[in-house]
């Protein structure tokens, strides 16, 4: 059982969490072509190496971001989503 460090709750068994997939920037809906949009929805990089992922701590309903090396399954860093998404949309 891996340990994941939740920014709110500290180290916990990874069974308390749900992975929400890679952090991907949403393209501007109005400007993106159909192909770009489809790629955003369905195309996943699935790269080897350090990847930013969404993780959800179920007991506190808390989303945060983890950087994980997909090659070694080592979790490099976790931090609140506000570090990446700090601005309100227009």
């Amino acid at each position: 059982m891996k340990i994941l460090h939740c920014p709110l709750n500290g180290p916990r068994n990874i069974s308390e969490f749900v992975c929400g997939g890679e952090v991907v920037e949403m393209p501007e809906a109005g400007a993106a072509t159909d192909g770009e949009w489809a790629d955003y929805v369905f195309g996943h990089e699935n790269a080897r190496g350090a990847v930013r992922e969404w993780w959800f701590h179920v007991p506190t309903a808390y989303w945060f971001i983890a950087e994980r090396d997909t090659g070694t399954d080592e979790i490099l860093r976790t931090y609140p989503a506000s570090e990446v998404f700090g601005r309100r949309p227009p």
Binding site: N9, R12, S15, E16, H57, V58, P59, T60
Partner: peptide, 12 residues
């Protein structure tokens, strides 16, 4: 305080 899973339900 731990907000965690107890017997598979979310518990404070």
């Amino acid at each position: 305080v731990a907000q965690t899973s107890v017997a598979r339900i979310s518990t404070i």
